[in-house]
Write a protein that binds this DNA or RNA. Structure first.
Length: 370
DNA sequence: ATGACAGCGCATGTAT
DNA sequence: ATACATGCG
DNA sequence: GTCAT
């Protein structure tokens, strides 16, 4: 999710109303969703957003996920802001930018960089943790304990790879490849291969590539495919073990040598590694991260919405839903009546119907690149 | 001043 | 063997 | 770190 996301391509905004008068309220990137055009780009405050992004990574790898998302939110606000920021005070009007970040912005504008960042960059332990965390399966905790044992580099990791979990070993094996983005054209090929396998397993299976691919971007960090079937209902979610679409799909793709390694495999979710088969006349392909998710049929459009993202779009849409008295999740939407959830599920036959329920204008996938 | 910031599937480790 | 907790994405 | 309570 698409959750999950660190899409490098981003889009800038043309704002709807930007009188920067002294409104006491901040320009919320919230109430009406800001408009974003997929084509135009570039952010007049690249220096600021780059530095704040670096800070966010340090926070995440120190185990401060909320500070991480706080920085990320500020960065998104700034990227969406159509002017060159000239002071911390100006920036502080933006949603997600508070006193501390404003102060940092002043320092950056004045001196060209940030002491806090410099000192963290000189901290051998912190930078080592940042390196190790780039391996999928190694998070802040594992990275920290490794560094305490004196393991500080990717090369060090190779020496002790037998002590790593399977997931981490695969992450190490494809370390460089997983940091490369997947071109849209390539995802289109995988899409067909997967569809063919699914059809031969059961023609009633439906599937859709989600994530930034579905939002129309020219490249993605990984490949994220949602799967459902009319007979796989919410009611059956308990008996999921008997509904082994994912297992069959994985088996089929391995036979075709499309799937080359697994990270995890359960009845509802697969995470693994795929690669196009090279057609003798060279052309070497790159190993890619791919996920499959099996979603109950009644939840399909909720899953589609959720897994298409962006994360920020989801946050804002959930917020609007809440204001209208609904909780929106990956599986369903519920009217909250006197604090208690309603048990009867609301059924929809499209994403648009979900927008309708909460009285929100429909945003097609390529308008969800917040 | 203080809590929320999403919730969940899978792998792995620990407790019972 | 089963139940629960943690890390991770 | 930021926002809402």
């Amino acid at each position: 999710m698409a959750g999950k996301r660190k899409d490098k391509d981003n889009s800038s905004s043309d704002d709807s109303s930007s009188e920067d008068d002294i409104k006491k309220k901040k320009l919320k990137t919230n109430t009406p969703l800001i408009k974003v055009s997929v084509t135009s780009n570039d952010n007049k405050n690249k220096q600021l957003t780059d530095i704040l992004t670096e800070l966010s990574v340090f926070e995440k790898n120190k185990g401060q996920v909320h500070r991480f998302t706080a920085y990320r939110k500020a960065v998104l606000s700034i990227k969406a802001y159509p002017h060159e920021i000239k002071s911390g005070l100006e920036a502080q009007k933006l949603d997600g930018v508070g006193a501390k970040i404003a102060k940092k912005i002043d320092e950056i504008l004045k001196t060209g960089d940030l002491k806090k960042l410099k000192s963290q960059n000189q901290d051998e332990t912190l930078t080592a943790i940042n390196q190790l965390s780039r391996v999928t399966g190694i998070g802040p905790q594992k990275a920290k304990s490794l560094v305490e044992e004196g393991i500080k580099t990717i090369d060090d990791l190779k020496k002790i790879k037998n002590t790593l979990t399977h997931h981490q070993q695969i992450g190490l094996k494809y370390f460089s490849e997983f940091e490369q983005r997947v071109p849209r054209k390539e995802i289109e090929v995988f899409e067909k291969l997967v569809s063919n396998s699914l059809f031969s397993i059961d023609p009633n299976i439906i599937s859709q590539v989600c994530g930034s691919y579905r939002r129309g971007l020219e490249s993605s960090g990984d490949i994220d495919i949602l799967i459902s079937h009319p007979n796989f209902t919410l009611e059956m979610k308990d008996k999921k073990k008997t509904f082994n679409i994912i297992e069959k799909l994985v088996e089929s793709l391995k036979k075709k040598h499309i799937l080359i390694d697994d990270l995890s495999l359960g009845p509802l979710k697969y995470m693994g590694v795929c690669k196009l088969v090279s057609t003798e006349i060279s052309e070497q392909h790159i190993a890619r991260r791919i996920d499959f998710k099996l979603i109950p049929y009644e939840s399909y459009y909720f899953g589609l919405l959720h897994n298409t993202g962006s994360d920020e779009f989801n946050r804002q849409m959930r917020g609007i839903a809440l204001k209208q008295g609904f909780t929106l999740s990956e599986y369903s939407i519920n009217k909250l009546s006197k604090g208690v959830k309603n048990e009867t599920p609301i059924l929809v036959n499209s994403e648009k119907e979900i927008f309708d329920i909460i009285g929100m204008e429909y945003y097609p996938p390529n308008k969800r690149n917040l």
